[in-house]
Amino acid sequence: MIIPVLRKLLPEEIKEKYHHWQEYKYHQNLRKTPGNTYKRFDETRSIFIHIPKAGGISIIKSLYGDQAEGIGHRTYKHFKWIFGEENYNDYFKFTFVRNPFDRLLSAYSFLKKGGMNAMDKEFGETTLKPYDTFEKFVMQWLTPENADSWVHFIPQYKYLYDENKNLMVNFVGRFENFNEDYEKIRHKIGTGEKLKHLNKSKDKKGENYRDIYTPQMIEKVVSVYKQDLKLFDYSF
Rank of each mutant, 00 (worst) to 15 (best):
H78Q: 06
H78M: 00
H78L: 05
F79H: 04
K80F: 08
W81H: 08
W81E: 11
W81N: 10
W81K: 15
I82L: 01
I82R: 08
F83A: 01
E85L: 09
E85N: 07
E85F: 07
E85M: 10
E86P: 05
N87V: 09
N87Y: 14
Y88I: 05
N89T: 15
D90S: 15
D90T: 15
D90F: 12
D90E: 15
Y91I: 02
Y91P: 02
Y91R: 03
F92C: 06
F92S: 11
F92A: 12
K93R: 15
K93Y: 08
F94M: 10
F94D: 00
F94E: 01
T95G: 06
T95N: 04
F96I: 07
F96E: 00
R98C: 00
R98E: 02
R98Q: 09
R98F: 00
N99Y: 02
P100K: 01
F101N: 00
D102V: 07
D102L: 02
D102T: 13
L104N: 04
L104K: 10
L104W: 06
L105K: 12
L105E: 13
S106M: 10
Y108Q: 03
Y108T: 12
Y108P: 12
S109Y: 10
S109D: 14
F110Q: 03
F110M: 13
L111Y: 01
L111F: 13
K112D: 09
K113T: 11
G114Q: 00
G115T: 02
G115V: 08
M116H: 15
N117M: 10
A118D: 15
A118P: 08
A118L: 09
M119F: 14
D120M: 07
D120R: 00
K121C: 10
E122M: 10
G124Y: 00
E125F: 04
E125N: 07
T127W: 13
K129E: 15
P130F: 03
P130H: 02
Y131N: 11
T133F: 07
T133D: 01
F134M: 05
E135C: 05
E135D: 11
K136N: 08
F137C: 15
M139Q: 15
M139N: 03
Q140Y: 07
W141F: 03
T143R: 04
P144E: 10
P144A: 03
N146W: 09
N146Y: 04
A147Q: 04
A147T: 09
D148K: 14
D148F: 12
S149K: 06
S149Y: 02
V151T: 15
H152G: 10
H152E: 07
H152D: 01
H152W: 08
H152K: 11
H152M: 09
I154W: 01
I154K: 13
P155T: 03
P155M: 00
Q156Y: 11
Y157S: 06
K158T: 14
Y161H: 06
D162E: 03
D162Y: 13
E163D: 15
K165C: 08
N166D: 12
L167N: 03
M168V: 11
M168G: 11
M168K: 14
